[in-house]
């Protein structure tokens, strides 16, 4: 779900950088308002490194195996740090593995980062409404599944928007349909994993989740 270099025209790539830059700036402002913003840094970094590695694990989803995105969980765990952490993760993926791209870093930041922030909001709202372990897991599921669905939708919309104008519109719609259907099991899987993890954290170490 990473947009590579070469697909996106210059104006859109620049717009992606501007939008991502503004959102990252707003997130950093929020973080810097805390009494000791640097205290949060090692926690965010260790967890980002762990997420980076965890997203390389392939889960069996017959007939294929898929890797997790975990941006919903990232939102629920890192809160405002989720967006800068995703930008850092994407930069490292582009440099180390060639996933994504340099010109598309801003757009990829929006594809993964916006759903992570939305999941953070969903999760916080859910925990404010109810504090039972079951509702925590339920909102974890919603946050995890929603983040992947939103990322997939943003990705495919950006990709199809940039395809040549001559592309058959029926084919375009079919591609969109196939992509969305293919991501439904991934969405459910991601929701399931996020719900399991949230339920575990609530029981073992609630400090791992964002404070409400």
């Amino acid at each position: 779900m990473h947009l590579p270099d070469g697909i996106v025209p210059l104006p859109l790539a620049l717009a992606g950088y501007v939008a991502s830059g503004l959102i990252a700036w707003a997130c950093l402002r929020r973080i810097e308002r805390k009494p000791d913003p640097r205290r949060e840094l090692p926690r965010a970094a260790m967890l980002t490194a762990a997420f980076f590695i965890a997203s390389l694990i392939y889960l069996p989803l017959p007939p294929v195996s898929v890797h997790l995105v975990l941006n919903g969980l990232l939102g629920a765990v890192l809160g405002w740090f989720a967006f800068p952490a995703i930008l850092v993760g994407l930069l490292l993926q582009a440099v180390m593995f060639g996933h994504g791209g340099i010109t598309t870093l801003g757009l990829n930041g929006l594809i993964f980062g916006l759903p992570a922030l939305a999941s953070y909001a969903v999760f916080v709202l859910g925990r404010k409404l109810s504090r039972s372990p079951r509702s925590d897991a339920l909102f974890g599921f919603v946050a995890g599944a929603f983040a992947v669905a939103a990322s997939a939708l943003l990705f495919v919309l950006l990709l199809l928007w940039q395809m040549p104008a001559e592309l058959d519109s029926a084919l375009e719609q079919q591609a969109l349909r196939v992509f969305v259907i293919a991501h439904v099991p991934v969405m459910l899987l991601e929701g399931l994993v996020t719900a399991t993890l949230v339920a575990l954290f609530v029981r073992i170490d609630p400090a791992l989740l964002v404070r409400v």
């Binding site: 926690r43 260790m46 967890l47 490194a49 762990a50 997420f51 590695i53 965890a54 694990i57 997790l68 975990l70 765990v77 994993v193 399991t196 993890l197 575990l200 954290f201 073992i204 170490d205 400090a207 791992l208």
Partner: peptide, 9 residues
């Protein structure tokens, strides 16, 4: 994944 995140935390 939970064990990895807890250890990192």
């Amino acid at each position: 994944i939970a064990a990895l995140l807890l250890r990192s935390h």
